[in-house]
């Protein structure tokens, strides 16, 4: 098992290296520079700045320097934000996005699983149909609509909750709900389909033939076997929720990484874009590793296929 994880970590580093390389050259192929939108800078000043940041060097030299710094954990400095180190910016913003995303993920997944379970048990009853409608709505209506509606009715009309910023738990409620609806809907649909299939398996009949009661059958025999597809979709979902959500952070003025990413792209802030991309990539491969390990925990047949322990 330990060997398997080490091997996977090795691949992760290789993946990240390749992503860093690709992103770097892609960024360099883009026209313009962080200074292109600055009107008041003279030609001479521009030269000085480009020289100072080494932007006049040949691209391979810049690449080698960037990768060298990267190995030491230095992601460079932001051009827009007064020479702040990118690492500091990321570290101040990522925890907020991750926290919001985690809340939404947990609440959405738990509610979705419950909804899907109930729908599966009451298959083809009105409960099932209502759960189905709820999940279709949750999947097809974008989260910013819920966000806007909540802000207007709960925030403005009723004045129950603050409509923006981040810090208190009250401020977290509405963005969390807005974000949780999609994972809830997806979770409910996957759970229902999977559970209905699992409950039709032969081993469920075996469990009934043992005289177990329905709750025991559902949770001891059904749930675990229905979890694999759910974990498969929830992994990437976790990444997209926890790495900052462009729209929701914007709507609620939450100083997360998503909001930062948008403004950096607008200003061609090379270092921050690279840093954020690398962070997304790192988080993504990490989640994939966790998902793969979870597969093994859930289903013993996958455990052996992964590598000998």
């Amino acid at each position: 098992m330990a060997r398997y994880i080490l091997q996977r970590l090795g691949y992760m580093i290789l993946t990240l290296f390749l992503i860093a390389t690709f992103s770097f050259f892609l960024m360099k192929m883009l026209p313009g520079s962080p200074l292109s939108s600055e009107q008041k800078v003279t030609e001479a000043q521009r030269e000085i700045i480009l020289e100072k940041y080494g932007l006049n060097d040949p691209v391979p030299v810049q690449y080698a320097r960037y990768m060298g710094n990267l190995l030491q954990g230095d992601l460079g400095v932001s051009f827009q934000l007064k020479n702040q180190p990118v690492t500091d910016i990321l570290l101040s913003r990522i925890p907020i996005s991750a926290q919001l995303g985690l809340y939404a993920l947990l609440i959405g997944t738990v509610l979705g699983m419950l909804l899907g379970l109930i729908a599966a048990i009451k298959n083809n009853s009105w409960v099932d149909y209502s759960a189905n409608i709820v999940s279709v709505i949750g999947i097809s209506i974008p989260s910013f609509i819920f966000a806007g509606l909540m802000q207007y009715y709960v925030g403005v009309k009723l004045g129950l909750l603050p409509i923006a910023f981040w810090g208190t738990w009250q401020q977290a409620v509405m963005p969390t709900i807005a974000l949780a609806i999609f994972p809830m809907a997806i979770g409910a649909r996957f759970m229902r389909t999977e559970m209905i299939e699992v409950l039709g398996s032969d081993f469920i009949v075996t469990a009934r033939a043992k005289g177990l009661n329905n709750t025991g059958i559902l949770f001891k025999h059904g749930l675990r076997n229905a979890l694999i597809p759910l974990v498969t979709v929830m992994g990437p979902m976790a990444v997209s929720l926890m790495t900052g959500t462009l729209v929701i952070e914007q709507i609620f003025s939450i100083p997360g990484i998503g909001e930062q990413f948008v403004s950096s792209v607008m200003t061609d802030d090379f270092a921050i874009i690279m840093g954020t991309t690398l962070f997304f990539a790192f988080f993504f491969v990490l989640i994939i590793l966790i998902v793969d390990l979870l597969y093994g925990i859930i289903d013993p047949r996958i455990r052996l296929a992964g590598g000998k322990d």
């Binding site: 398996s201 081993f203 009949v205 075996t206 043992k210 005289g211």
Partner: peptide, 23 residues
């Protein structure tokens, strides 16, 4: 449920599918 498994038991046809794979 008190009778099944205690007074009447069943052996099923396909042993490949009648056991829970995750237990």
């Amino acid at each position: 449920q008190q009778i099944r498994g205690k007074e009447i038991s069943t052996i099923f046809q396909d042993p490949m599918t009648s056991l829970n794979p995750t237990m």
